[in-house]
Write a protein that binds this DNA or RNA. Structure first.
Lengths: 185, 185
DNA sequence: CTGATCATGTAATTCGTTACATGATTCC
DNA sequence: GGAATCATGTAACGAATTACATGATCAG
């Protein structure tokens, strides 16, 4: 592995066309963020590293006097992106879920306390789900006007995923109520 | 938020009884790791911080001359754990999934290349699933002999989760085959 | 004219992994 | 005797967030 994952987020985004660091961050925040986030503190330094490596090319274009540097992929950048997309290096997969962590240790709680936590967790995933549903029509329209189908597919995945989490919360809550034995803290 | 999540992993583990840093790491690796990992580089320093803060108490007990320091919860540690378990501070939730990231950018690939990547992803989740199923009987036995029900519940969650991911991969692959239009790179 | 948005960047800090060093004991 | 496991720890590095600083333009 040569480049960071964030580098690929940038290369992938630039493949859609010329973008500034700010543009990239905005796009990430409504798309890949749900399975790969990135902050300014990563994006700007990474853009410069990529430029130095010849994978992207930045062009100062002060629009109406506003300082601005838009980047685009070079052929080498395109090659690097493609190589990553088809490579079979081990995939980074990581979940950090504080709600599940709490649940794991919830034998220290009363059934009522545990149930309250599960309800909170479900509410949280419902919130994320509705956030994704807000983006959905926009993504669908984008797909119909263009030819990109995977952004919508990943969004649909995200929606199904949150729904799965919600369903699981419901089931766990029911099981808690069912297993009605005294289980004080 | 005062303590790191890793601190709570430690406190939660110690609630099960006296443990060394090595014990904690071994337990984490077969349990919480799937939604919260921890390395020696975190565990040992954190144990000392927690001891300094009075939340755990370490006791040198050289077993047969082997250097060893086993920790246990203090009443304050127990309180801190409980406070976290019932708190409604925002929950850390984060997914980093390189496979989905690749998929998101897969419009740069031919249908065949994209399908191959999805198959790889499915295989990967199948591998994790079988790993979890290996642990399952052990966890089930543990539950039956003791009174802890949440560790098994979270493991079952993990199994359902991997199954969900596998199913989604299958569906996406089928959709790729169905949408049979020429979509060269 | 004022708040939102566009736009770029850095510094400090936190978080976490990996690799290394060390050494005892237990099981085969 | 040798490999696996028990056991503790540190140093170097990398990844990522947060907060800050700065300033222009645009929409109402």
């Amino acid at each position: 592995m040569e480049l960071s994952k964030t580098a690929y987020v940038i290369l992938g985004t630039l493949r859609l066309g010329q973008r500034t660091g700010y543009d990239i961050k905005s796009l990430v925040d409504v798309s890949t963020r749900f399975f790969w986030a990135a902050s300014y503190g990563q994006i700007y330094p990474e853009l410069r590293r990529l430029e130095k490596a010849g994978l992207v090319k930045g062009e100062r274009d002060p629009q109406n006097g506003r300082r601005r540097k838009a980047y685009e992929l070079t052929p080498e950048g395109e090659r690097a992106l493609h190589a990553w997309l088809v490579s079979d290096d081990p995939l980074h997969f990581e979940l950090r879920h504080e709600g599940l962590l709490k649940l794991f240790f919830s034998d220290a709680l009363s059934s009522e306390e545990a149930a309250a936590q599960i309800r909170r967790l479900r509410a949280e995933h419902e919130r994320i789900l509705s956030e994704l549903r807000t983006i959905e029509p926009h993504a669908r329209a984008k797909q119909e006007e263009g030819d990109k189908r995977f952004p919508l597919m990943t969004l649909e995945f995200g929606i199904a995923y949150q729904q799965f989490l919600i369903d699981y919360c419901s089931e766990m809550e029911q099981r808690l109520v069912a297993g009605t034995g005294a289980s004080g803290s």
